[in-house]
Structures are given as structure tokens and as C-alpha cells.
Amino acid sequence: MTITTLLLVLLSAVFVNNFVFAKFLGTCPYLGCSKDTSSATGMGLAVIFVMTMTSAVCWAVYHFFLYPSTANVLYLVFGSAQAAAADSAYIKTHFDLTFLSTLSFILVIAALVQFVEMVIQKVSPALYSALGIYLPLITTNCAVLAVAILNIDGMMLHGTQLGYGHSGSLLFALMNGFGGGVGFTVALLLMSGIRERLDLGDVPRPLRGMPIAFITAGLLAISFMGFLGLVK
């Protein structure tokens, strides 16, 4: 996995396949936390942090507990090497827990968010006062669960399927999670600036609040289509 590839993954996650504008992920917090720039910044930073962490931890869960391979901890503890040697499908038939991905990922995320909250509170009260109120909200941010699920399949880049099974899949997951968070933050900041201005404007009454926020998001999505084809 070269630096160029990583940069392209980052660019793709931030601009081309922006989580909000191209994938419709995290729409509820996107509209909920974009009313002013300061809460947008706080939420954005918290999301970047949690999405990167989630990508790494969920990759590890998938690698060591769910995916049937010789690295699977359950196989190492309960499996038998002789049976695996005799039957090549042995590990796959007995230790394939990938159907539990969604369930385990959401539990991991909930625990992780709780844990991060406690650590930050202990280590950096300043950071906690900035991000603290946003962290509990993140558990239900579907972008976080989505990035963990999407990291498994990964993305197509220059004809190579990056994702689980590819040699650099952990690095890819980290970069994709980080980029997804940055893309979410960019979207959030742009939106918050616009909404602050709209508050001073003369939006027709029926459109004030949610409707105009959606329409603005639609126009931002049209603008972001300019990035199409940037990463093939």
C-alpha cells in the first residue's frame, strides 16, 4: 500500500464519495448539529476521532473473531489443527461468524464511545469539555457503523479491490475511517456557515429550518458532483 494509494483513499472519502453528499450517511446528526459553527466543529472532531478508532477496532474484531482464518482466536482456542489439515473447509464451516458483524460492530462502537469518553474525561478535561456532549450522540451516527461495514468490502481503486483480504486492509480501513470523518466535518462546517447566514435572511416561512437545510444539502450535493471521476 503506497502513499499515493492512501492519499487517493483519503481524497475519495473526503470529496468524491463524501459520506453525507454521496452516501447519505449520518444525515440526522448532520442536520442536527449544523446550526452553528462551533457545535459543528465539536461534532466534526468527535466524529473524526471515533470513526478512525472504530475502523481500527472493528477491523481487529473482524480479523480475530469473525472471519474464518488461521488467525481466528476462536479457532486457535477451540479448533483442532489436525482437522484443519485434513479438511480444507474445516475452518470455514466451523468458525465463520461473519454473519454476526453488524451485531458485534455496534456493540464494539457503543463500548468504544463510552470508553473514549471516560479516557478523555480523565486525561484531558479541556478536550472533554469541547467534545464531551457530542460523544454519546455518536453511537447512533450511522456513518460510524457504516464505515466499519464498508471497510470489509472496501473500494475499487485502479482495478484493485482494497478491503478485507487485501494486504493493506488495516491501513485502508484507518484511512477510510479518518477520511470519512474529515468529509463529514467538511460537510458539517460548510452547512453550519450557510445556516448561520440563512438565519439572518428571508427564507419563506414554510421552508425555514429543516426544509431549507435539506434543499441546501441538495445544492451542496450538486456542487460536490464536480469531484466525480477524481478517483477511479
Binding site: R197, L198, G201, V203, P204, L207, T216, L219, S223
Partner: peptide, 10 residues
């Protein structure tokens, strides 16, 4: 939708 001339963002 944004209120007419002077208020449009785009």
C-alpha cells in the same frame, strides 16, 4: 427558496 435576490447562497 432562499428568499430571493440578496439571500441566495449559490
Amino acid at each position: 427558496c432562499f428568499g430571493g435576490l440578496g439571500y441566495n447562497i449559490f
